[in-house]
């Protein structure tokens, strides 16, 4: 295989994995709460900042040069913190719009995204400036002519494992069964002794924690993070979920791979493609929505008898 093509495939899988981790949250939250959580990208993007703060705290107080162990600890802490942050977002804001028209929750979450971004900017020291974000590893494996960064393998592996864990949780565990029940019929779920608010909190934790992992990978991939990176990542993740079919987990994965495919192809084949990538990505989004408004794997909503 051509080394360039192999490199291209690898990039595609890495970006597709990162987008998937964000898109899953959009789809999961829409499927369970019927809400488009537009600030999901911004909430997720809080994770690299939490991780940086943890690294800072650890290196200042405990070990001056923690290395990879510190970074892994920081990422785990950021995942947990952002997961809880998602629960807080639901409790503080989204909960107020449970019975409101979908448009109101949408506008509220758009506003919330700005609040989160600006909070990061003001609370984080010199928050307006881009922050260098450490690479998990800079090791590169040589497979013939193909250079395979170990980081890429980690991203792909962790993403696949996360998706597998999510599917297992949703389809094979009691809490997953309850999440699916609430997604289908909140009122009847209550008759089955399920408290929807608890399920919503759990769902928010899962979606935000998975998004946090995606955002950390995004920052690590870019080598840098800025307070407003969540806008683009959120838009791409949301678009991926929409063109795949909002509410469908498989759709979120498919949509992410589609968008990542366009992304890497444009960057590789078009001169100065990196500047145009968003044009092509969002043209694809429009095209899919024109051709199949419910998304590639979107199903018509089940008719109630």
């Amino acid at each position: 295989m051509d080394a360039l093509v192999a490199q291209h495939l690898l990039n595609w899988l890495v970006l597709g994995s990162i987008y998937t981790l964000v898109a899953l949250g959009f789809s999961l939250l829409f499927g369970v709460l019927d809400v488009i959580h537009f600030s999901h990208g911004d909430v997720s993007m809080a994770a690299p900042f939490v991780a940086l703060a943890v690294i800072q705290a650890v290196t200042v107080t405990l070990v001056p040069d923690g290395g990879t162990a510190t970074l892994i600890l920081a990422i785990l802490a950021a995942t947990l913190v952002v997961g809880l942050f998602g629960v807080l977002v639901d409790w503080l804001v989204i909960r107020r719009f449970r019975a409101a028209p979908a448009m109101m929750a949408l506008v509220a979450t758009v506003a919330l995204g700005t609040v989160v971004r600006e909070l990061i900017r003001t609370l984080y020291p010199q928050g307006s400036n881009p922050k260098p974000f450490p690479a998990l590893t800079t090791e590169v494996l040589r497979l013939g002519e193909v250079a395979v960064p170990v980081f890429s393998l980690i991203v792909i592996f962790v993403s696949v494992a996360t998706v597998a864990a999510l599917f297992w949780l949703l389809n094979r565990t009691p809490v997953g069964l309850r999440i699916r029940a609430v997604a289908e019929d909140r009122a009847v779920a209550r008759l089955m002794a399920i408290r929807p608010d608890r399920i919503f909190a759990i769902t928010f934790f899962i979606a935000s924690a998975i998004g946090a992992v995606g955002a950390v990978f995004f920052a690590s991939h870019a080598g840098v993070v800025r307070f407003d990176f969540g806008v683009q990542l959120g838009l791409i993740g949301f678009s991926a979920a929409v063109i795949g079919g909002l509410g469908s987990m498989q759709g979120a994965i498919l949509g992410s791979l589609l968008i990542a495919g366009v992304d890497t192809t444009v960057q590789m084949t078009i001169p100065d493609g990196a500047s145009y990538r968003l044009v092509f990505i969002f043209a694809l989004v429009i095209l899919v929505l024109v051709l199949k408004p419910s998304g590639v794997l979107g199903k018509p909503v089940f008719e109630k008898v």
């Binding site: 009691p174 069964l177 309850r178 699916r180 029940a181 289908e184 019929d185 009122a187 009847v188 779920a189 008759l191 089955m192 002794a193 399920i194 089940f302 109630k304 008898v305």
Partner: peptide, 26 residues
Amino acid sequence: FVPEGRRLFPTLTVRENLRLAFDAAR
């Protein structure tokens, strides 16, 4: 309860529908 229109969870299997009700009874 048998709600109006049955209101089963349509994408859940019969067993899963029954499981939820069984667990609810504690």
